[in-house]
Design a protein around this nucleic acid. Structure first.
Length: 502
RNA sequence: GGCCCCAUGGUCUAGUGGUUAGGACUCCGCUCUUUCAAGGCGGCGGCACGGGUUCGAUUCCCGUUGGGGCUACCA
């Protein structure tokens, strides 16, 4: 059996979106599982919409997810070039062969004429297909128009009788009546090939064994198969993947909010979590396993495990999964990912001292257990980095606005200030000692202290969190909260219900 | 409209001609803890509908309904 070769063939007309990333991931996983090659090919035959920025964005997105390619525009390969706009002569050659063999012909109909006739067909309840007005132009007419330089495109003459059956690994046999096919354009007036032409030629020349792409291409496949047959190409194995839908069950698109893969990076998704999540849409290892690292995905991935039905992009579950990865992740690694985000929010200096860096790793280690997105570190964990943090309503209502609290905070501040060592044990002793002295339960000190130091009622272990704050800062926080409490400025604000108050 | 694809809780899914239809997210309880947004335990909730085939259908076939895709000189 010949080598497995798959490809991802995006058009550089925007950022790498979630759907594209999903398709790329599946094609890549299959190639890796089979020990084959994965090719990146850029389909920029849409001259109007293709951009260089978009190409860069595709590279970035794939690399972020950990998808590498054995052949592609930047790394080259035996079938270079891998950018379609650089392969124009190749398509031209095949198009000419089709014209010579009578399987393709020049069409001089203008877009306006075509649209007009399509309207008529639709009005009559007929499928809008090209009416073959130019299929057998008299030779002299053809020559005259050509001589005049009248613009034309080239159409493939489809076989319109019988059926075309395609064998799809995920869908089985799918057959199409050829009479529904129209003579589609293979070369635009501009001279560029259409997607249909370029994809067929390149998949053949690049020896793609498995065409793995999204289901939206299934209906185009019989046209492609006819083209392959007319050109004498072998037909590859097809695998049409289920689409990813938005919550409204239509194909995921801009309307659904974040469809740009890198938006998720911005929000603090880890690439390994996103990759794991994407893999689980429309594929299952056949077991209950859900958290799968890269190697496990590669080991378990098969086309048989791909489902036929479309899947909805469930942000809730993606977020949960990300939290699982955050919990398991190495704090040093997370720190690296977090730094740019902290800098963006002016929460940390640009040049970190080694001590400061170790401190940050400790903060990350303490917080990662309960975060779900990297950005939680800058919101929930803001108080680690600045004394300028808000007091939330729960903290105000439950503790900070209580009459007895300011005095206790001041007493605690005094004890904290007097501590000669600053570690978990001494902090705990100071707090519990005060509680004992006042003859109240420790929680009566712990909770107000947390509220004063963090502005929140929830978070990591209080003593550990305090240890990571500078001693003098803790003292300031306690005194400030006491002062604001006395001044009556710790009343809950706004009308936002922060939840039950027990 | 035509063609094609799809159909297990709200979501992602496992699974079978005979199962108490399994797991995960979400939600809701309970529990542990200095707090929960963490941990532990538990619960609600599903085979779209109608016909067949069969001793027996969630599973196989047909239809209906619903959803989606394609129907471009976009890919």
């Amino acid at each position: 059996m010949s080598e497995v070769r798959t490809r991802f063939a995006p058009s550089p007309t925007g950022n790498l979106h979630v759907g594209g990333a999903h398709t790329a991931l599946f094609a890549w996983l299959f190639a890796r599982h089979e020990g084959g090659k994965f090719v990146l090919r850029i389909e920029d035959t849409d001259e109007v919409r293709s951009t260089d920025e978009s190409l860069a964005a595709i590279y970035d997105g794939l690399r972020w997810l950990g998808i590498d390619w054995d052949e592609g525009p930047d790394v080259g390969g035996p079938y270079a070039p891998y950018i379609q706009s650089e392969r124009l002569e190749i398509y031209e050659d095949y198009i000419n062969r089709l014209i010579e063999s009578g399987r393709a012909y020049r069409c001089f109909c203008t877009p306006e004429e075509l649209e007009e006739r399509r309207e008529i067909q639709r009005a009559r309840g007929m499928p809008p297909r090209y009416d073959r007005a130019c299929v057998d132009l008299p030779e002299d007419q053809l020559q005259t128009w050509l001589a005049e330089g009248k613009p034309y495109c080239v159409r493939f003459r489809v076989e319109d009788e019988g059926t075309t059956v395609i064998n799809d690994v995920v869908r089985g046999e799918v057959s199409f009546d050829n009479e529904v096919l129209g003579d589609f354009v293979i070369r635009k007036t501009s001279g560029y090939p259409t997607y249909h032409m370029a994809v067929v030629v390149d998949d053949y020349l690049m020896k793609i064994s498995h065409v793995i792409r999204a289901e939206e291409h299934l209906s185009n496949t019989p046209s492609h198969v006819q083209l392959m047959e007319a050109l004498g190409f072998d037909v590859p194995v097809f695998a049409h993947l289920p689409l990813i839908m938005g919550t409204d069950r239509t194909k995921l698109s801009k309307r659904h909010g974040a469809v740009n893969l890198m938006d998720y990076k911005e929000q603090g998704f880890l690439p390994e979590a996103m990759r794991n999540f994407l893999a689980l849409i429309g594929w299952s290892p056949g077991t209950d396993e859900e958290i799968l690292d890269l190697q496990q995905l590669i080991d378990r991935f098969t086309l048989e495990g791909v489902s036929k039905s479309p899947g909805i992009f469930d942000l809730e579950k993606a977020t949960w999964l990300n939290g699982e990865y955050l919990k398991r992740a190495d704090a040093e690694y997370l720190t690296e990912l977090l730094l740019p985000m902290l800098r963006e929010h002016d929460l940390i200096e640009d040049d970190l001292s080694p001590e400061r860096r170790r401190w940050l790793v400790d903060v990350v280690d303490l917080m990662k257990e309960r975060t779900r997105l990297l950005k939680d570190f800058v919101t929930w964990g803001r108080y680690f980095f600045t004394e300028d943090f808000p007091y939330d309503n729960r903290a105000r209502k439950k503790w900070l606005s209580r009459e007895e609290v300011p005095e206790r905070l001041d007493m605690l501040a005094e004890r904290i200030e007097a501590l000669e060592t600053w570690d978990v044990d001494s902090i705990e002793q100071a707090i519990r000692g005060l509680a004992d002295e006042l003859d109240v339960s420790a929680s009566k000190i712990i909770h107000p202290c947390r509220a004063a130091c963090t502005g929140q009622t929830i978070g990591p272990s209080l003593f550990h969190l305090m240890e990571l704050l500078p001693q003098d800062s803790v003292v300031r926080r306690l005194r400030r909260a006491a002062e604001l409490g006395r001044a009556g400025e710790m009343e809950p604000v706004g009308s936002v219900d922060e939840g039950p108050d027990d």
